[in-house]
Design a protein around this nucleic acid. Structure first.
Lengths: 156, 156
DNA sequence: TCTCAATATATGGTATATCATGGGATTTTT
DNA sequence: AAAAATCCCATGATATACCATATATTGAGA
């Protein structure tokens, strides 16, 4: 897995009538040396779209493949949901992608989309929903400061 | 195993009176440099058709052959069933395949087929059945959030 | 610190290419 | 000879590529 690339910052862009949005240029440069597309899917737990490089999903596919769990049930469930939903979104020379109806609906996005960096991934939110969610998250963190455990290999 | 090919997304295509279906173009490009056919077989656990590249089945055969795994006996049985059922389905210049009666019946497909990406594999469902199955899976995931953790990365 | 020019990025609109699908012609199978 | 499978062409819908304009960001000079 390539290191030193992180989706960061929060950027607000317009969605036109055809569903086109400019992918923030910072995000584009992350992918550029590999390809000209990004992968998006409906978040399983939030009303937003999630995005990442195909590289990340490819790694997931590999790990599953090599775990000798070709027939495992849990793998089955999750791979169905993630790969079944994920789709490549190529961006043209002007840097736009065309989000599908399904994705836009899931995130309640119509005119405006907010890109929120999340490290190896990013999310796309409806502006109002993101404002609320961010407030909620900040509040939660203040209340019970969670530990960022490194031994357990969880960084989220 | 070749990198960077993933069956993704969910695509709905028609099955015409002759039994022809367009293999989604994204799926075709995955196979194109190798061949012009895809392998399909009846899913062992769901009322759907499964598809993959011949390459993947080849890898499966190899893995079983070289496995010292204690449970490989079970894997062996399952593999037998798959190889007994699997068949190559060539697609023509317009990208269509003709699924067999046996497969269509197993998945209860008549007019419409839904292609569901699954990483290195994909599935073909009856539309109603897939809708139900997807709902079920999403529900299950929401109830008891399983972790898809591999070497510190989270994919969900 | 401010202003203005230069550059990069975002957005709107239009032309072009691609894909799914229907139908007919040709070949193969039984 | 009949049935089935394969191939090939035509078409409408839709996504993609491209060009043009607007907006924002950056940097230099005062």
């Amino acid at each position: 897995m390539r290191k030193n690339f992180l989706f960061m910052d929060t950027i607000t862009n317009k969605v036109d009538t055809k569903g086109r949005v400019s992918l923030p240029s910072d995000y584009r440069t992350i992918v550029k040396d590999l390809s000209t597309e990004i992968v998006c899917y409906r978040s399983l737990f939030s009303p937003c779209i999630e995005g990442c490089t195909e590289e990340l999903l490819d790694k997931l596919a590999n790990d599953i493949e090599n775990s000798l769990d070709f027939f495992s049930q849990t793998q089955d469930t999750l791979t169905n949901l993630i790969f079944g939903d994920a789709k490549r979104f190529p961006f043209d020379s002007t840097g736009r992608i065309m989000l599908s109806e399904k994705l836009l609906k899931h995130a309640s996005i119509s005119n405006t989309a907010v890109f929120v960096g999340k490290g190896r991934k990013f999310q796309i939110w409806n502006p109002q929903n993101w404002a609320k969610e961010e407030a909620r998250l900040r509040n939660e963190v203040l209340k019970n400061r969670p530990s960022l455990k490194y031994e357990g290999e969880r960084y989220d």
